[in-house]
């Protein structure tokens, strides 16, 4: 009897925690939806913000976020690809573990430290100043491990028979990379890039004093200008949480940002779920 009681208590406790964890997600999502939806309309999405974000929309904030993460993706992708290929195809086996640990270490660096470092290195040392390019460089370093690991996993999951076939044809290592490895790991590139962009889009601390400005910017006309972004817009509006109009706009911006990120995450999940290699069908 006592054993049965223990069993019931244990599983009830586990079920309660599961339900709590899942309802947390729903509470958070519905809070964002309920508070954000009233702000969303065509005008909100297609006009610029006015009066310190209390009025108007978030058009240029959204575009700023796209510019920042787009450039970060362009900068990070080739490096991630090259490094993934090198780590899987060229690097001696004994060093691969160490290389992995270094990549994971980069992933663990607190983002605010990327902000401080990026500001001094790109902003002051390379004289890019507070500009969207500085921000994109910082975000590129930040998302590099995400993209890299995804591509690396895709390469590692290429069926061995593909490589055997290539080697049997007498391909050199470099030809093998071009003819088999890169084409066969494209899904990893896409999912990795999506995950990386999603991570970059959610990042605030690394760009808040390096890449963005509060007002006066529509679209940058050069590399050296700052942009506005959804993330920093929410941050500034959140600090004046008393003003109902500012707050509604903050929630609206939050909803747009979360939707954007979730779309990218869902996209990467879908690609991951549907991909199978030809040879295994």
């Amino acid at each position: 009897m006592r054993r049965d009681l223990k069993e019931v208590i244990f599983f009830s406790a586990c079920i309660i925690t599961t339900v709590t964890a899942i309802s947390l997600l729903f509470i958070i999502l519905s809070a964002i939806l309920v508070r954000g939806l009233p702000a969303i309309n065509l005008e909100f999405l297609t006009t610029e913000s006015k009066e310190f974000g209390q009025n108007g929309g978030i058009l240029y904030q959204t575009m700023g976020t796209f510019i920042l993460i787009g450039m970060a993706g362009i900068l990070a992708f080739p490096i991630a690809l090259g490094s993934a290929v090198y780590q899987t195809e060229y690097l001696s086996l004994s060093l691969r573990g160490t290389a992995d640990l270094l990549v994971y270490a980069l992933n663990a660096v607190p983002t605010i430290i990327f902000g401080l470092f990026g500001y001094m290195f790109f902003g002051v040392f390379l004289k890019l100043g507070v500009s969207w390019l500085t921000g994109s460089f910082i975000l590129a370093i930040m998302v590099l491990p995400t993209v890299l690991v995804s591509i690396k996993e895709a390469i590692e999951s290429i069926p061995f028979k593909y490589l055997e076939a290539g080697l049997a044809l007498g391909l050199t290592q470099e030809r093998l990379v071009r003819a088999v490895i890169i084409p066969q790991s494209i899904h990893g590139m896409v999912t990795g890039l999506l995950l990386g962009l999603a991570r970059a889009a959610g990042e605030t601390a690394a760009i808040m004093f390096t890449a963005t400005t509060f007002s006066g910017v529509l679209l940058p006309a050069s590399f050296r200008e700052p942009v506005t972004s959804l993330q920093t817009h929410i941050l500034i509006l959140a600090q004046e949480a008393i003003n109902p109009r500012a707050l509604t706009n903050a929630w609206g911006a939050a909803l747009v940002l979360v939707a954007l990120i979730m779309l990218m995450s869902l996209g990467s999940m879908l690609i991951r779920a549907t991909i199978t290699h030809e040879a295994e069908r």
């Binding site: 958070i28 964002i32 889009a201 959610g202 990042e203 929410i234 959140a238 979360v258 979730m262």
Partner: peptide
């Protein structure tokens, strides 16, 4: 995974 994707600034707003 979706929950993990919600940005820190949105948690801050919450």
């Amino acid at each position: 995974e979706l929950l993990a994707g919600i940005p820190g600034v949105v948690y801050g707003l919450l």
